[in-house]
Simulated assay, not measured.
Amino acid sequence: MAGRTAGGGTLTEDAGAAAGTGEEPMVKVRGLRRSYGTGEGAVHALRGVSFDIPRGELVALKGRSGSGKTTLLNLVGGLDEPDGGSVVVDGRELSGLGEKGLLELRRDRIGFIFQSFGLIPVLSAAENVGVPLRLRRAEAAEREERVALLLSLVGLADHARQRPGELSGGQQQRVAVARALANRPALLIADEPTGQLDAETGLAVMELLRAVVRSERVTVLVATHDTTLLGLADRVLELSDGELTEQ
């Protein structure tokens, strides 16, 4: 799929209306700009970035350290506000949602996975996975069924009662993946999810994300610096000097 720099233009012309299906893309980014600081010392993290992510795709985001990958993920996930441009997730433009709307979107439609795992040490694996369900006040029976299903999906059914400190790094990241899926999100955002893992374990986690795309039809945007893992993505977007190219 041919790509070009995205300095204000679209990549792949709306991604062929979501890969030729006519379906609305899960993510539509147009002319996104974000800077830090002012004057000559300003850092332009993003310079008019535009792209689409069709539903059900795993898209990898690559770039050197400090290239703006995390900034872009935060903007797509509604954790930060751009200086200009727009982000539409699941048909909703983030700038028009307000803080309450963004909170609901992040709770119900977006799952996050971070390099640091972010698990609660005093809770078991099952309890960690169940946290999002408790926050939305799901019934106990529904919560237990969903947690059991997710732990089975990530291969940790036999570790439900163990706390994070009793699990390996790869197992902890699998718990984090299960937790991110608890509320059946439409979009999964992962920021260097294999950064603290060895190569073999990191590959296993990426293969898990690939399987999740198929089994739960989740759209995944994952930032990674590991070139070995990029081959598992449907597409690769590269950030360079605040602009985006597609490979």
Rank of each mutant, 00 (worst) to 15 (best):
G68N: 08
G56L: 07
G39C: 06
T70P: 11
S67T: 11
D52R: 04
S65H: 14
E57A: 10
G66V: 03
K28C: 15
L79N: 01
Y36L: 14
A60E: 13
M26N: 12
L46P: 07
L73S: 06
M26E: 15
L46E: 04
R33P: 04
S65D: 10
A60G: 13
G77F: 01
E57R: 13
G68R: 08
R47I: 03
L72Y: 05
L58Q: 13
V49S: 00
L73E: 15
R33E: 15
I53T: 08
G66F: 02
G39K: 02
V29E: 08
K62R: 14
F51Q: 02
H44K: 13
R33Y: 10
P54E: 13
K62D: 06
R33S: 12
R64L: 11
A60Q: 12
F51V: 01
T38K: 09
R34I: 11
T71D: 04
G66E: 03
G66S: 05
G63K: 11
V27W: 06
G66I: 04
L75Q: 09
G68M: 08
V49L: 01
P54Q: 12
A42T: 14
L46Q: 04
V27Y: 05
V49K: 01
T70E: 14
E40G: 13
V43A: 05
R30I: 07
D52E: 15
G68W: 09
G39W: 00
S35I: 04
Y36M: 13
E40F: 12
S35Y: 06
G31I: 00
G39Q: 07
R34V: 15
V43I: 11
N74P: 09
G78V: 06
R47D: 07
E57S: 11
R34A: 12
R47K: 09
G39I: 00
L75K: 02
A45W: 00
V76M: 02
K62W: 07
S35M: 05
L46A: 06
G31P: 04
I53R: 09
L46Y: 08
L75W: 03
L73G: 05
L79I: 00
R47Y: 01
K69Y: 15
R64H: 10
P25Y: 10
M26G: 14
V59R: 05
H44R: 10
R33F: 10
G63I: 14
G31K: 08
A42L: 11
K69H: 14
G68L: 09
V49F: 00
V76C: 02
N74I: 03
K62L: 12
L75A: 05
G78W: 05
E40L: 14
S35D: 07
V49P: 01
R30T: 10
G39P: 09
G39S: 06
G39L: 06
K28A: 15
V59C: 10
G78C: 07
G63P: 11
P25L: 11
T38C: 03
T38W: 00
M26D: 08
T71V: 02
G41Q: 07
P54Y: 05
G31L: 01
R30P: 07
Y36K: 09
T70V: 08
G37R: 06
K62T: 14
E57F: 05
T38E: 12
D52Q: 11
L32C: 02
V43C: 05
N74R: 11
S67N: 09
T70D: 14
G31D: 10
T71L: 02
R33I: 08
V43M: 04
R34S: 07
A42Q: 15
